[in-house]
């Protein structure tokens, strides 16, 4: 079933705040082998001018992927999750995520199209603090593979 192009431009209600923990940043950094002290040691992060440990660049995906279920699982849009392939991913940072951030995601559908039997869905997630400070904008493009 082709995706409904009338969803382009739709913005979803902000998600519940995600509390960024120091140990979560350490765990994520360790999992990707990122050993820079600023990911692990608050003093090293403060020396770079940050209030607490700094998350690696792709850390926000933890928050945005959970938030994107708002779109992917929207029954009205009708994405077949079993045919979903992650096509593109992009981050534009206002500043790095740091421990202690409370992050809220606002999802927007930027593009919906169907080409060659496949569906394409581009989402933008604006990640900001609960206080409204922008942190990072995150785009994801998904391919929904057509029935072969």
């Amino acid at each position: 079933m082709p995706l409904d192009p009338s969803f382009v431009g739709r913005t979803y209600p902000p998600t519940a705040p995600y509390q960024v923990g120091r140990e979560k940043i350490r765990e994520f950094a360790s999992a990707i082998g990122a050993t820079d002290p600023a990911h692990h040691d608050p003093e090293a992060a403060r020396a770079l001018g940050h209030p607490d440990v700094v998350a690696p660049p792709t850390f926000p995906v933890i928050v945005t992927m959970a938030a994107s279920s708002q779109i992917i699982e929207d029954p009205a849009l009708g994405v077949d999750y079993s045919r979903l392939v992650h096509g593109d991913q992009r981050f534009a940072y206002t500043r790095p995520v740091v421990a202690g951030d409370e992050l809220v995601c606002t999802n927007t559908i930027e593009d919906v199209s169907t080409r060659g039997g496949h569906g394409f869905l581009t989402t933008r997630t604006d990640v900001s603090t609960v206080g409204g400070e922008p942190v990072v904008a995150v785009w994801a493009r998904y391919v929904i593979r057509g029935e072969a």
Partner: peptide, 27 residues
Amino acid sequence: MFTMALVGRAVTGWAGSPDAVVEYGVR
């Protein structure tokens, strides 16, 4: 996203700082 994270490590390595990435995208 794991591949993207490893490539991100390479990028921050070249930058010489873990907080230097302003924009980062892949297909």
